[in-house]
Design a protein around this nucleic acid. Structure first.
Length: 660
RNA sequence: GGGGACGUAGCUCAGUCGGAUCAGAGCACCUGCCUUCUAAGCAGGAUGUCGCGGGUUCGAGUCCCGCCGUCCCCUCCA
């Protein structure tokens, strides 16, 4: 609603500028006046045009207002201050529009989708930690945003099942702990906390490597065996990584995060994706074989650096790069670095590789969604996932350079359009406050205690496991629910506690903008008051209680139109209108979040909406309202606020509990 | 050395396109408010050299330049 009116206003402004001044190229900035008493939209273009037209801004504003005339949905336009144009919306008409607002059509769910989002992508060798939660929650929320915006989206979770980290865990079991293949396979299948077992084993093997060169050499041996395939070590690695992936899927499912497809590195290797990419890269001159210096014998590419988009990527015949300007893609022993496999993978994502994965069913979600996994051959009736128009990779900021290497390679291969539609959805890490680290029992030096945060380290086993955090948050919510609602059945209390915990956790991860490092602290994360998920959930519960006590459904409040003009004009009308205005902005904010790739704005939106509603709730006691017309107006207000709160929470992946 | 991010209240952070109440929120602290649609709430109070210095502009927390500080990346790791 807010967005539609804004678009209409801009359209009329363009026409007015063309007609009055013959201006076609004006940059029309639409803002909001400092308060709703001044109107809903503010225009500042008079100031910009002042110099060009050699007129006073106020004069220009007056001329534009005259040229605009009447626009449907708007009450009037006013010149204010030194030359602002304030637009006042027809509040009653806007409110009636909001009441009858139909739900947007659901985007198609056929595969492959228009947009591909990759997120989570945890090394399958240990339990997930809080940093992975930020990734998955950001990614999943962005997927929900895109779908709410009407786009069809596929969600991929890349599984690096033949990499160094998986090799490390195999070394841990086979060489450090000297377990037999049968023992490891058994543990992978029956250990109820196998992911935690691996977490500890991974930390131990990292220490063990430091003891001798011989120990470290095991990693290379195992890595080689994994790439080779068809041997005991590869079989162990497959069993371990597959088991861990299932743990990760279950952990994320607790937060409402689901995936469509798990492409695995093993298939990228065995289906020879790299060989195809390698040929293309050589042919187009994107990489060349170094003959001199430390990198002699390697295939290298130009480093991305801060290169202009149009700059040449391919290298001229016989050209050589300085040591720092070259990035190794193929090692002198012939093995491919991670970025190389990533280039092949991304050619596939855009449908530019000329080869597809096989697809097998891997996991079935309770809501009916199937999660597929890559394979060398396919199950019957399988979908396909490659060939997206637009991709988003939710990957932390530390990997920006590697991501740029892939983008640059695509450009160098002539896939300029694909490179343009490749977005690194970057975010900063989750670290721990020194206090939190100390609380967890990790030894912290006096120097580290002075730091703002300390980076987690899987290698050291230093961090907060995702399931531990979720458990703790549920326990904390459970305690409250139990004391507040002893009358409810156990199962119901558990469901509500879980909804609150997930709401708190997801909101916590989303309230920070992507560029902010989160210094994690239990005290802050476990807080359910103030700017938190439960605050917004509680606002919904309050709204629901009104309708429950009134004995009518929120839907019924939509059907009868109140005398909006009268009530919005009343003394407290503007304060109530501000709640309607905020409620009308959800679609607008969703669009902003997509355009700026920033889900935090939606978190802010739901908080503001909840704040306005709580304020309204406190000021107007609806059930005691004697005037039936006004009571109906207040009920409609609560119904719209409730609907938009629920809708926004849903996009954030946060459920609305029936009671709290 | 090169690339990137950040620096706003005691703490944690918003501030999207440069706009008029733009000096904001939450937490923490203090004071009120539960017989009311449940207080996971509401109302009120206090707190600032928007890192520093220049510049552009009718207008700068926001853009440009320089400096200071913190962090990340720059392996034939992933």
């Amino acid at each position: 609603m807010y967005r539609d009116l804004q678009l209409r206003l801009i359209e009329h402004l363009r026409a007015a500028l063309r007609q009055s001044y013959g201006i076609e190229d004006a940059n029309i900035v639409v803002e909001q006046p400092p308060n709703a008493d001044l109107g809903e939209y503010a225009l500042t273009l008079s100031f910009e045009l002042a110099r060009r037209l050699r007129k006073a801004p106020r004069k220009i504003a007056e001329e534009i207002v005259a040229a605009l005339g009447r626009i449907e949905g708007f009450d009037r336009f006013e010149v204010a201050g030194a030359g602002y144009i304030n637009a006042r919306v027809d509040r009653a008409a806007a409110a009636r529009g909001l009441l009858t607002q139909a739900d947007r059509p659901q985007p198609p769910t056929s595969h492959p989708a228009e947009i591909l989002v990759e997120h989570t992508s945890i090394n399958p060798n240990k339990a997930a930690h809080i940093g992975h939660l930020r990734n998955a929650i950001l990614g999943d929320t962005f997927v929900r945003l895109l779908r709410a915006g009407g786009h069809s989206v596929d969600v991929q979770n890349y599984i690096d099942n033949t990499g160094v980290q998986v090799a490390d865990i195999v070394v841990a079991f086979v060489y450090l702990e000297r377990r037999s293949k049968a023992e490891v396979l058994q543990a992978a299948q029956s250990d109820p906390r196998f992911d935690y077992t691996c977490w500890d084993a991974y930390a131990r093997v990292s220490q063990w490597y430091e003891q001798s060169k011989q120990n470290t050499a095991r990693r290379g041996e195992v890595l080689h065996a994994l790439e080779e395939g068809n041997n005991d070590l590869a079989e162990i690695a497959a069993a371990v990584s597959t088991a861990i992936v299932r743990f990760h899927l279950r952990t994320m499912q607790r937060l409402g995060v689901e995936y469509d497809f798990l492409p695995r590195e093993s298939e990228i290797i065995h289906l020879r994706f790299w060989d195809l990419a390698f040929e293309q890269l050589k042919e187009k001159g994107v990489i060349y074989k170094e003959t001199r210096g430390a990198k002699a014998g390697c295939w290298v590419a130009r480093r991305p650096k801060a290169q202009a988009e149009g700059a040449a990527v391919a290298l001229d015949e016989g050209q050589s790069l300085s040591e720092e300007d070259s990035k190794v893609i193929v090692r002198s022993n012939g093995t491919v670095v991670y970025e190389g496999k990533d280039i092949a993978y991304h050619l596939w994502k855009f449908g530019l590789l000329g080869r597809d994965f096989g697809y097998r069913r891997f996991y079935q979600y309770p809501d009916g969604r199937t999660c597929w996994v890559s394979a060398e051959s396919s199950d019957a009736d399988h979908p396909s996932f490659g060939g997206a128009r637009q991709i988003y990779n939710v990957i932390d900021a530390r990997q920006a350079e590697a991501q740029n290497t892939v983008i640059q390679a695509l450009r160098g291969l002539g896939h300029v359009d694909a490179a343009k539609h490749y977005r690194h959805f970057s975010y900063e890490m989750v670290a721990l406050t020194p206090r939190c680290a100390a609380e967890l029992g990790y030894p912290i030096s006096a120097e580290d205690m002075q730091r703002a945060y300390i980076e987690v380290s899987g290698r050291k086993g230093f961090g907060v496991k995702a399931d531990d955090l979720i458990d703790r948050m549920i326990a904390s919510a459970q305690q409250e629910v139990d004391t507040r609602h002893p009358e409810l059945a156990d199962a119901e209390r558990r469901t509500i506690a879980s909804q609150i915990a997930v709401g708190a956790l997801r909101y916590f991860m989303l309230k920070f903008t992507r560029t902010s490092v989160i210094a994690f602290d239990f005290k802050e994360a476990l807080n359910f008051e103030g700017e938190t998920g439960p605050y917004a959930q509680y606002a919904v519960v309050r709204a629901s209680n009104i309708f429950r006590k009134a004995g009518i459904s929120p839907d019924a409040a939509f059907s009868e139109a109140a005398d909006f003009a009268r009530f919005f004009a009343a003394e407290d009308g503007t304060a109530i209108w501000e709640l309607w205005l905020a409620a009308s902005k959800t679609s607008y904010v969703i669009e902003q979040c997509i355009a700026t790739e920033e889900p935090a704005y939606l978190a802010k939106h739901v908080f503001q909406l909840a704040q306005l509603f709580n304020n309204f709730y406190h000021r107007h006691h609806i059930l005691n309202e004697p005037d039936p017309g006004r009571k109906q107006f207040l009920l409609a207000t609560a119904a719209v606020a409730r609907r938009e709160l629920i809708r926004t929470l849903d996009v954030l992946g946060i459920g609305a509990p029936p009671v709290m």
